[in-house]
Design a binder for these strands. Structure first.
Length: 494
RNA sequence: GACCCCUUCGUCUAGUGGCCUAGGACAUCGCCCUUUCACGGCGAAAACACGGGUUCGAGUCCCGUAGGGGUCGCCA
């Protein structure tokens, strides 16, 4: 149904592609999760479509049934959804269109633009090996191109190949790479239909892109050479090719192709690492594309500014540190309510026990003081852990070191003063601390450090009064007395 | 190996022949702020791959070299 809809907007094309309605597509093959490179490709397509008020379609390239699996499809959809890249209409599954693809091949066969090839896999292997040995480009030699199919043994399997132009050159006007030309003699006659009658990727893509009315194909430049073959196919079918835009690949930190050894490569890994989707979008948009010196920009701005001309032509390396810095910006700006559930969930996992409502309230109150100190949601929950740790709370090395004999004495001194506070408010807390400091003639650090250690078990934390207020009277006093007790000092009187 | 593409600080990039003494951001280092950790502010170091042209003038145009990447399947 959906496909018919796009067929309707596809009259006999006489106009140039650039004047067509803008329809982009993201066409992943469901062989794994949504790769970070794929995510950026999807993002660029999405931005371009939104910028032009066009459509962004999703097509699952699953013609190779053996390599496709349901989990991968879900993972890809989840990834896109998480990233906020909504597609228009329903997902097109390529395998449902096989008959249409086959029809196109048979039409070319009938028109003499394609032919049956009976070359065996062994023959092809031999051709390739010889070519390599002679340092030529390996390719099919066209041995069945002009041969009578009747010469083949009866019932022998065959593929259908395109009768590609043997001379001249094929040119594509790539919106990113510019004019790219290749001699037709470099290309061989591509297979359209396999010996089992199923269509190849090359055929399916061309037929689907045409039928879906795709005006712009934005994809990784590993497809650049495919664009030549696809252009030949478009010509043979007498369809106008879309505008191609081949964007450079994303490389790992070491400059080689992004792969598993670079750690996280799936978008869902980034979600688990505690990144906000808007931060990833911002980072990915800035990677290989630019709008002057702008670094932090909203998705709306990206949509408004996006253009293919501003995409760089060289590959770019993935920089985790910069990603996290951008994430930190968004973390500080985000409404705490949005990230609270995530933080609560991570803390529950860390502790192996869900947070009760009191603890949740504690975390909620603390969030604004915490987000400005971390770069990811993982760091956030690490930092927040002390809020919900069971007493006596764990002490890290620096905290232990801060709790000197001297320090414990001060804690013992301050304990009854805190205990005597009427209303446990920040203002009252502050004045009690200030009074003590004035009395003892010491700087805030001398008291603050031990308090921080006792209260947080770590030195990285919000300000002391904030912590006291968030923890509340009972918990605060309890944590302080825990430290007094461990040193064998007399327990303060309740 | 063949073909195609790419090449500005460590990284992402601005730059479309004179505004470039090459700008910004991340990372790094220093200083300031400071009750810790962060934030923030100020500052430093850091690049036009190389060689030839064209031009009054080149990061910007052309050619070559080097380096990097991609593709070469009845995979997608």
């Amino acid at each position: 149904m959906l496909i018919l809809k796009y067929l309707e907007v596809q009259p006999n094309m006489t106009v140039s592609p650039s004047s067509r309605p803008v329809i982009c597509r993201f066409a992943p093959s469901p062989t794994g999760f949504l790769h970070i490179g794929g995510a950026r490709t999807a993002l660029f397509n999405w931005l371009f479509a939104r910028h032009h008020g066009g459509q962004f379609l999703l097509r699952v390239e699953d013609t190779d049934r053996a390599r496709s699996n349901q989990d991968a499809i879900y993972a890809i959809l989840r990834g896109l959804d998480w990233l906020g890249l909504s597609w228009d209409g329903e997902v097109v599954f390529q395998h449902t269109r096989i008959e249409t693809h086959q029809a196109a091949a048979h039409r070319l066969l009938a028109q003499g633009q394609a032919y049956k090839c009976f070359a065996t896999p062994e023959e092809l292997t031999e051709m390739r090996e010889r070519a390599r040995a002679e340092k030529r480009t390996p390719k099919y030699d066209g041995r069945w191109r002009n041969r009578d199919p009747n010469e083949a043994p009866a019932g022998a399997p065959y593929v259908i190949r395109l009768k590609a132009p043997p001379e001249g050159e094929t040119v594509i006007q790539d919106a990113v790479q510019g004019t790219v030309t290749i001699a037709n003699s470099e290309l061989d006659d591509m297979v359209l239909l396999r010996s089992d009658g199923t269509p190849t990727y090359m055929l399916s893509v061309v037929v689907d892109d045409h039928d879906m009315g795709i005006s712009h194909v934005i994809r990784g430049d590993d497809h650049l050479t495919n664009a030549f073959r696809q252009t030949q196919l478009f010509h043979a079918l007498e369809w106008e090719p879309p505008v191609f835009a081949h964007i450079p690949l994303i490389h790992g930190q070491d400059g080689s192709k992004m792969s598993k050894r670079h750690g996280a490569t799936g978008v869902e890994d980034y979600r688990d690492m505690g990144l906000l989707p808007e931060a990833l979008r911002n980072y990915l948009a800035r990677l290989g594309w630019s709008h002057g010196d702008d670094e932090i920009f909203s998705t709306e701005q990206a949509v408004e500014w996006f253009s293919l001309e501003a995409i760089g032509r060289g590959p770019s390396r993935f920089d985790q540190a910069k990603l996290e810095t951008i994430n930190a910006h968004y973390l500080r700006a985000v409404d705490p309510k949005v990230i609270l559930p995530d933080c609560v969930a991570r803390l529950g996992e860390k502790r192996d026990r869900a947070l009760n409502s009191d603890e949740q309230a504690r975390v909620e109150k603390a969030l604004p003081f915490l987000t400005e100190r971390v770069k990811t949601l993982v760091e956030l929950s690490d930092l927040a852990y002390f809020l919900v740790a069971d007493r006596p709370i764990p002490m890290d090395k620096k905290a232990t070191k801060a709790l000197t004999e001297d320090a414990r004495e001060r804690l013992a001194d301050i304990y009854p003063r805190l205990q005597g506070i009427g209303e446990w408010t920040e203002t009252n807390l502050k004045s009690v601390l200030d009074e003590a400091l004035a009395e003892w003639q010491i700087g805030f650090g001398k008291l603050g450090q031990p308090l921080r250690a006792a209260l947080c078990g770590q030195m990285a934390a919000p300000s002391i009064t904030d912590v006291l207020a968030i923890l509340g009277r009972n918990e605060s006093l309890g944590r302080i007395s825990d430290q007094l007790a461990t040193k064998g000092q007399s327990k303060p009187i309740d």
